[in-house]
Design a protein around this nucleic acid. Structure first.
Lengths: 345, 345
DNA sequence: TTGTACGCGTTATCAC
DNA sequence: GTGATAACGCGTACAA
């Protein structure tokens, strides 16, 4: 076990000064060809690697991005991470991940921890509880400190910084329009409570599509879920108690619960009821029937967020203009919403 | 924008020396009550936080764990991360996550990067390509350097370090025994190529269960998948071309593809064919029919791995005894393998 | 061509 | 009770 080589040790070993070693390794012309070769050979032989921490301290840059997410066992967030990691790695950055578990306190704690020098900038998606409390002082603090922040997906309007979002309203509209095009007449929405920003927007998109087609919005056909853990029974009951031929759900989980409810009711998908949802994860592809979805392009969101952040970190302080990047969604039609009208002919 | 307070600035501001400030903030008795209060008040007011990087350099400890995984868009790994993060956070550690994407080169690169001072220890699950090449010099190097490593799930026998695994063979045996108990007579296995350590072990467990019940192992009923991306068609064909009444799959994805194949064949699950698989993820719970599985307890594996690593980091170098922790699996019976014999009565 | 001195932010040690 | 100094590992401006 060799405890890690430093410049000082190389210097001592080769009987030169530390700075000579440093310069030689960085190919400085100040150093004679001979000593340079000797030092480089030695360094290579013993596999010298400069200490990142020392470099961070010296350069006042950690080359590390802090990522703070509400959860991770969720294809969408996992995809975002993969996207961020891809770009970060390519551009020479590491990624520290922290999970808030949707808790406000943990979000604040983690931010403080990371903000104390561990990272150069933040990418974060705010916790549900934070959105509910509407308390964003920890974000403001970090930003005031001069640390760049990029908000992803679950953003906060009143915070001024770069953002990467998808057009939730438009995505939802598109989904519901698809159901309408397929001949659905009574379309239900299974969504989240309004304080979840993306949930609210998707509910609005649902209403928008109906209005654009001169349909009335029937509030009894909108189910707003508070807690995903106990959502299944609620959804099954909701489906059982209401008449509908189309369902728009804000995520895959709600969709599958809805399909379960429909089956229990003795109806079938897509024969009797068409279903479409947000979040194109593994579940959608594998489910039988496979689920039609609105793809959120998580990887692209992640890549964009990382690029935005690193640009701001590395590019000269060109301007204070903050970007809000809207990543497009795409409609993916699968079995759960195949066209009704074809059955009629 | 206030650019981050340091001891030096506080010292200058309050007209005392840096060391006085440092001591005061750490409640040293050497400092008079008066100055101590004054300094602490000032620090609090301007929200002073010691710089982590400087502390890391001084203490030669980063309080950070490096986590290197083959992939992340996968419930099992996501669960492991959640478990690690939980413990790390509780014990005051951060987690840097890197993804190898199952590539040997990226694994080596990432390890070198992190090993250069960024972290105190590693938790890793080796890439598929690495297992194929059987080249583990990067692991040995890091370990020789004196950095603790904990291998998780996809471990390497010939490397000496702490490990957290599940008893893949026993889990598989249990799964197949369950099918046998349910009255299955022709049980197929859908698994991975043998160089994937866990795949091989599960295949062995499958064979073991059959032998224990005096069944012969029919090699034609074993499908070994190389590449998961193109697995669906292979599996569907396999199911179509062979007669079977039970299927053991090494992961959820293979299971769902198998069920698709069975349906296409005009048969039903579990009526005609029972199905069980490894990995109790979201897919298993939501699928219709819900999938019977062998739960791998990813969160527990993560927690255990983190505890092992941090113990080794913090506890006195008690011994060089390395632990291999075996996390138990549990059989979760759901719809896809409900008992056949009941249907007979 | 090489070496010395300094600073990044912190703490421990020792002198005052 | 307070402050100066050294050290963690590195890079660089400046001196030799």
């Amino acid at each position: 076990m060799k405890p890690k080589l430093t410049l000082k040790q190389i210097a001592r070993e080769l009987d030169v000064s530390v700075s000579t070693v440093s310069k030689a390794l960085r190919d400085s012309v100040e150093i004679s060809e001979e000593t340079r070769q000797k030092i480089k050979a030695f360094a290579k032989l013993y596999n010298y690697k400069p200490n990142n921490i020392a470099l961070s301290l010296k350069n006042r840059k950690t080359k590390t991005i802090g990522l703070l997410l509400p959860e991770i066992v969720h294809d969408f967030f996992a995809t975002i991470i993969a996207g961020i990691e891809e770009v970060a790695n390519k551009r020479g950055y590491n990624v520290i991940i922290c999970l808030s578990n949707n808790s406000f306190d943990r979000e604040v704690m983690n931010m403080e921890m990371l903000a104390s020098g561990s990272i150069d900038g933040f990418i974060l998606s705010v916790a549900k509880e934070t959105q509910q409390k509407e308390d964003y002082h920890h974000l403001e603090e970090v930003i005031n400190q001069g640390m760049p922040v990029v908000l992803v997906d679950r953003v906060v309007d009143c915070i001024t910084c770069d953002k990467v979002i998808i057009d939730d309203m438009e995505g939802a509209r598109k989904a519901v329009q698809h159901l309408i095009d397929n001949g659905c007449r009574k379309i239900a929405a299974i969504t989240t409570v309004d304080y979840v920003s993306v949930g609210k927007l998707r509910t609005q998109g649902y209403a928008k599509a109906l209005k654009e087609n001169n349909r009335t919005v029937d509030e009894t056909l909108i189910l707003k879920i508070e807690d995903i853990d106990n959502s299944e029974q609620q959804i099954v009951n909701f489906v059982r108690d209401h008449d509908m031929d189309g369902i728009f759900a804000v995520n895959e989980h709600f969709s599958t619960s809805a399909i379960k409810g429909i089956n229990l009711k003795g109806l079938s998908v897509p024969g009797d009821v068409s279903v479409i949802s947000f979040s194109d994860g593994e579940l959608s592809k594998r489910f039988i029937p496979s689920l039609s979805t609105i793809n959120q392009h998580g990887a692209e969101m992640g890549r964009k967020a990382a690029d935005l952040l690193i640009d701001r970190l590395e590019l000269p302080v060109d301007d204070e203009k903050y970007q809000t990047n809207v990543i497009g969604t795409s409609l993916i039609v699968r079995e759960s919403s195949s066209i009704k009208s074809t059955a009629m002919f």
